[in-house]
Simulated scan of single mutants.
Amino acid sequence: MRRTVLKSLLAAPAAVALPGLVWAQAKPEKSKLTVAVGGKNLFYYLPLTVAEQLGYFKAEGLEVEIPDFAGGSKALQALVGGSADVVSGAYEHTINMQAKRQPIQSIVLQGRAPQIVLAASTKTMPGFKSIADLKGKKIGVTAPGSSTAMMASYVLAKAGIKPTDVSFIGVGASSGAITAVKSGQVDAIANLDPVITMLERDQLIKIISDTRTLKDTQAVYGGPMPAACLYTPVKFVQENPATCQALANVMVRALRWLQKAGPSEIVKTVPESFLLGDRSLYLAAWERVREAISPDGLMPEAGPATALRVLQTFDDKLKTAKIDLGQTATNSFAKKAAAKYA
């Protein structure tokens, strides 16, 4: 843990890093893939949608199926259960799974800020004053165990509230989450845009903690906090380096497109259902989180250490676990992809 994380990332396993020059343009070992995701309509996963809609997977020789689950923890379960090859999900899962001796690795970063917002319901908690008021309450998250639940747990822990002092309720990441707040099923919610912006518009929530911008993320976590990434078992990375390179190429190309895309291009690219019935609000929400999208797919040097420190704040098992952060992510694929799409 004391080694420099960047050095660890660059010194990726030999099976991954050394053959790079040989297989960079090689045919993917596995062309048919299942990439699981939890809440595909969220901006958190927009690079994945862009890649799919613009045909970037096919351009790299990949035929990809993308099942959408209620939350990131459900997508992770699909990977562990063998029904998915790769997950587009929160980086934090790579740390949690290493602690469980089921090593998975991020091969390309999609988000450099979590975009998650914790907010109190103005319907059930009109007199909300502080985080302490959440003790004993029901908090809606995309799915228990997901990154939204982890973010909420961290904010609560800093206020002296244990995760067991509240009830986490899975509400998904779309209209179901909005309904849960409107109907009073939950007292607070940890979710992402465009859901949060729509709840704000209707004055249904009061923001408690916000990580939609780099500045706010720094304020909440005290350092850079990596968010969405493509992760897969370390064994898959070692056995399918050309496939992983193709996936990184796809994602970096999508990230580059998003850096230049205008509002009209975004709306034309995403499915109509993602707009949740309000195009202008969707675009307004996009502008609020735009900088949270990674520009290059690279894991920031201090990112893994920040994530580990955050998780250790509320997870006692991780306080004593031996975590090799260098095994949780590699920048080797993203660097080659960046060179290809420079």
Rank of each mutant, 00 (worst) to 15 (best):
172 G>T: 10
172 G>M: 11
190 A>E: 08
180 A>H: 01
193 D>F: 10
190 A>S: 14
158 K>D: 07
191 N>C: 12
199 L>F: 00
191 N>R: 11
196 I>A: 02
156 L>R: 04
174 S>F: 13
205 I>D: 01
156 L>H: 04
195 V>D: 08
205 I>G: 01
183 S>T: 10
202 D>A: 12
167 S>H: 07
160 G>I: 10
173 A>D: 06
177 A>P: 06
167 S>R: 12
204 L>A: 07
195 V>G: 04
174 S>Y: 10
158 K>P: 04
169 I>C: 01
176 G>E: 13
172 G>D: 11
174 S>T: 11
198 M>P: 10
183 S>E: 12
185 Q>P: 04
201 R>I: 06
186 V>E: 00
179 T>G: 09
179 T>V: 09
172 G>R: 08
155 V>C: 07
160 G>Q: 00
192 L>H: 10
174 S>I: 08
183 S>A: 11
197 T>S: 15
175 S>L: 14
186 V>I: 06
182 K>C: 08
161 I>G: 14
194 P>Y: 02
172 G>H: 08
164 T>G: 07
186 V>M: 04
164 T>K: 10
178 I>G: 05
202 D>F: 09
202 D>H: 06
204 L>I: 05
200 E>Q: 15
161 I>D: 02
166 V>F: 10
202 D>G: 04
184 G>R: 03
160 G>S: 05
195 V>Y: 11
200 E>P: 04
203 Q>C: 13
205 I>W: 00
205 I>H: 02
184 G>K: 02
190 A>W: 03
186 V>S: 02
182 K>V: 12
163 P>N: 03
159 A>M: 14
165 D>H: 02
177 A>E: 03
198 M>Y: 11
201 R>N: 14
168 F>T: 06
170 G>A: 14
199 L>A: 01
169 I>S: 01
187 D>F: 07
169 I>M: 03
158 K>R: 13
180 A>W: 05
180 A>K: 04
173 A>Y: 09
166 V>A: 05
172 G>A: 02
184 G>E: 01
161 I>A: 12
164 T>V: 13
170 G>T: 08
162 K>H: 15
187 D>S: 03
166 V>S: 03
158 K>V: 05
187 D>R: 00
173 A>N: 10
181 V>G: 03
178 I>K: 12
159 A>T: 03
204 L>F: 01
176 G>Q: 08
189 I>A: 01
